[in-house]
């Protein structure tokens, strides 16, 4: 466990004093299955973006651009809700 702070350098009582810092908490290694995005099959309806509980679907200018694997926990809701199903998003086992 490197890069972690000592007990004298953290706020007491486990209080989080900085808003929005969950982005620093990488949850990607919890994953056993991961969504694999196929850009050619994607119609950019953004249903995956709507349903993703971790805000792990990357979007620019109204179009999907990829998946944030640092935070995606692999729940699979994006692939389930995708109207194109396996043509655009499919779940594959993490190797």
């Amino acid at each position: 466990m490197t890069g972690l702070k000592g007990y004298k350098d953290i706020p007491i009582g486990g209080v989080i004093t900085e808003a929005g810092n969950s982005v620093q908490y990488k949850t990607g290694d919890w994953r056993s299955m991961r969504p694999d995005w196929i850009p050619e099959g994607c119609v950019h309806c953004l249903m995956c973006w709507v349903f993703c509980p971790e805000a792990a679907i990357k979007v620019e200018n109204g179009k999907m651009t990829g998946i944030d694997y640092d935070h995606c926990k692999g729940c699979g809701i994006c692939a389930r809700e995708c109207p194109r199903k396996e043509k655009a998003l499919r779940m594959v086992r993490e190797s």
Partner: peptide, 28 residues
């Protein structure tokens, strides 16, 4: 010093601390 009704400095009470930080909070 830290309290929930201080809207100027919002804080979270009761988050998760696992193998990485739980020990440090007990030492405090």
């Amino acid at each position: 010093s830290n309290y929930l009704l201080n809207i100027k400095e919002p804080v979270t009470f009761g988050p998760l601390a696992l193998q990485d930080y739980y020990t440090e909070f007990k030492v405090q």
